[in-house]
Simulated assay, not measured.
Amino acid sequence: MTLTTDIHASAGTDLIARVDEIGDLITSSQPEALRLRRATDTVAEALESNGLTRMSWPRSRGGAQLSMLEQHRVLTALAGRDGSTAWITAIWTATPHMIRLFGNDVFNEFLASDNTRAAGVFSITGTATKTAGGYTVTGAWPFVSGQHHSGWVVAPAHSDHDDQPLALLVPRSAFDLAGTWDMTGLVGTGSHPLRLDNAFVPDHHAITFQNVLDATGRDARIDDDPYYGQPLVPIICALSAGPAIGIATAASRYFSNLIHHRAIAYSPHQIQAHAPNTAYQVAEIQALIDTADYFGTRLACAVDHHIATGEPWTIVERVRSRFDAARAVRLCRTACDIIDTASGATAHTRHSPLTILLRDMQALSVHAFLAYDSAAEQYGRVLAGLEPTYPIY
């Protein structure tokens, strides 16, 4: 094992310990986050002060620069406390990979700014008009998770200059809210839609969106750094599996305790755990979560392999990354559906921890980027020797 791997493992273990240290704070803040429909300021500050928003920062700039496997484990642990908290942390962990591609000057500007958390979206719903020194940008972007506590937003837009979609790095202060956040799951992510109206974005804060997908940076020194030279979709996908696995694991723990304290109505079983069918359900739930973690771990290790070796990604590998994440989420959703059915009305009690967990899983499982049918279709196509038909992979 190399010294670098030892450093990564040590830092990852330390951050998981910090999740445990602030776990009670995260859990106790959940009712207030549900009321506010965003993370509380206290939780956001705790994530920041404990280094959990800097998992993917360079170690030379105060970050952990964790391996992807360690990031997967940290996010799984966070989701065991609160799914919304894990999701916004995953966003804040992914965006530095994107911002690094804008060049060292822009990356240093970001790292030196007053607020170094950045939200990011994939929807190319804005329009950028070329003007002197940059672009004038107008548009609205939905589902901007973590925007409330972010200092920056990475938002894509269509360019009327050369018809190439752009990725834009814009201060959060330039945006206005464009609507409410009314989802029933992942309520605490504060994923309000945001809007820009004729906002100026300088040239150095714009690169082609394809460059972000392919990890082709503006600065050659960035291209030579394999940690920040990985295509974006595998990075995003590898950070998406942990939240789902953590939510499902927490729901399973709750259910395993619940079955010793409730009867099965209209049956002879006064203790649910004693019913033969319950044993099968518990076993199936655990098998589904274990299998989900296999896919999440495989994906994280694939990213780490490419970082370590510098080998280019094949199209099959890039498409498989989205499949692995979607498969993990689908398996976790299935586990939670069993818990939902087996828990009866208990799973639908307002503000019950189990209710919140199940709703968070339902919301995460319908995220368009993690849609299983789309991911499986593309993976099957490339395995059959056909070209992928979806543009983002």
Rank of each mutant, 00 (worst) to 15 (best):
G23K: 06
L36Y: 07
T42W: 02
T27C: 04
S60N: 02
G12C: 10
E45Q: 12
S56E: 02
T42E: 09
Q30C: 11
P31K: 08
E21N: 07
I7D: 03
E32T: 15
L15H: 08
L34I: 13
R37I: 13
G62N: 00
G12M: 10
V19S: 05
A39F: 11
V74L: 15
A44C: 09
R35Q: 15
T5Q: 14
G51R: 01
Q30R: 14
L52N: 02
S67M: 06
D6S: 13
S84Q: 09
T40F: 09
R54C: 03
R54Y: 03
A17L: 13
L78G: 06
T76W: 15
S84M: 11
M68L: 07
A9C: 05
T76G: 14
I22V: 09
P58Y: 00
A79T: 07
T27I: 04
L52S: 01
A33G: 15
E45W: 08
D82Y: 08
R59D: 01
M55P: 00
G62H: 00
Q30P: 02
A39V: 12
T53F: 05
R59L: 02
P31C: 08
A11V: 07
V74P: 04
E45R: 11
H72R: 07
D20L: 06
A33M: 15
A77G: 09
N50V: 04
L15W: 06
D14K: 08
Q65V: 05
R35M: 14
P58G: 01
V74T: 10
H8E: 12
T53N: 05
H72A: 06
P31F: 12
L15V: 12
H72M: 07
W57H: 00
A33I: 12
D20E: 12
I16T: 14
T42L: 05
V74E: 08
H72W: 12
S49D: 09
S56P: 02
M68W: 07
D20G: 08
E32H: 13
V43N: 03
P58Q: 00
A39M: 13
I16R: 15
G83Y: 06
Q71C: 14
H72Y: 15
G83T: 03
V43H: 01
D82M: 05
H72G: 04
E70H: 12
D6F: 13
I22R: 03
H72V: 04
G62S: 00
S28H: 13
S56F: 05
A17G: 13
A44Y: 06
D24K: 08
R35D: 14
G62E: 00
A46T: 04
D20C: 04
R59K: 04
I26E: 02
A77W: 09
S84E: 05
S29R: 02
T5L: 14
I7Q: 10
L52Q: 02
D6M: 13
A9M: 07
L78V: 10
Q71G: 14
I26C: 03
R81D: 04
E21K: 11
L66F: 05
D41F: 07
L75V: 10
D20A: 12
A11Q: 10
V74M: 10
S84I: 06
L47N: 06
A17E: 14
S56G: 01
S60Q: 02
R73L: 13
A9F: 10
S49R: 12
G23W: 09
E21H: 10
D24M: 06
L75W: 12
G62K: 01
E70F: 11
R37N: 11
P58K: 00
A39G: 11
I7L: 13
D24R: 11
